[in-house]
């Protein structure tokens, strides 16, 4: 247990944590953003459903990359994890409701 927490506090551990946050949580977050985008384009902008889905899919990778960039530029690890999980959870909730 001690070893694990020691590794996490080390430089490499911090980098690993950041990579997990950026690539895994970021993947979930970008997917939920994409879904919200697709659904709201269809709902509120009056774009047909397949087109809205395609537009959102086209921008999905851009969203993902921006999230990854953000994840590596935020100073505090805590803020990063909090922000990402909060974002993912809220947006998945919104996507579910829409």
């Amino acid at each position: 247990m001690n070893r694990v927490s020691g590794y996490i506090r080390s430089y490499n551990g911090q980098v690993l944590l950041r990579i997990i946050a950026a690539f895994l949580i970021g993947y979930l977050a970008s997917n939920s953003i994409g879904v919200v985008l697709a659904k709201s384009l269809h709902r509120f902008a009056g774009i047909s459903q397949p087109e809205a889905a395609l537009y959102a899919s086209l921008s999905a990778f851009l969203i993902y990359s921006v999230i990854i960039l953000w994840a590596f530029s935020v100073r505090s690890q805590k803020k990063l994890w909090q922000g990402l999980t909060l974002l993912t959870l809220t947006l998945s909730g919104v996507a579910f409701l829409l």
Partner: peptide, 12 residues
């Protein structure tokens, strides 16, 4: 997209 981001369209 269809390989790595299929979820967006499917969930929409």
């Amino acid at each position: 997209i269809s390989t790595w981001m299929p979820f967006v369209g499917v969930a929409a």
